[in-house]
Design a protein around this nucleic acid. Structure first.
Length: 112
DNA sequence: CTCGTGACTCCCG
DNA sequence: TCGGGAGCCACGA
């Protein structure tokens, strides 16, 4: 199989349930690199469209969209809203509700 | 092959 | 409390 960091990241992201979000740090850690948060972002940027990954379910540690307005911010925001994930006045996601830790218990989705 | 960059995070002042 | 700097690793040119 030769599982590499990139493949793991892609897989983890693909497992994020609908209506949930995760952050770069957690994904990186589960993928094998404790400090690979930036790589996760880079991989996402590189393979999100190609592998049909729910990139919009990945946000930064604070629960905010890291994308800058005009660079995909609105796109991600809209996609999240489509999954019942809304942002508060500060464009922050309620992590208490939507943060996905990777447990099977949280594998249920609000969509479908 | 080498260099630069990036949708981050943590630590320190 | 908030801001700035350094570290990290993979991928593209």
């Amino acid at each position: 199989m030769t599982e590499i960091f990139t493949d793991r990241v892609r897989r983890i992201i693909a497992q994020i349930p609908c209506g949930k979000v995760s952050n770069y740090g957690i994904i990186a850690r589960r993928a094998g690199s404790a400090s690979g948060a930036r790589q996760v972002a880079r991989i996402l940027h590189s393979s999100s469209a190609k592998y049909n990954l729910p990139w919009h379910r990945v946000v930064n540690r604070k629960g905010q969209i890291s994308l800058a307005p005009g660079r995909g911010f609105e796109r991600q925001k809209k996609l999240l809203e489509e999954e019942n994930v809304f942002l508060d006045g500060n464009n922050t996601i309620d992590l208490q509700k939507h943060l996905w830790l990777g447990n099977d218990f949280d594998l249920y989705g609000d969509c479908e």
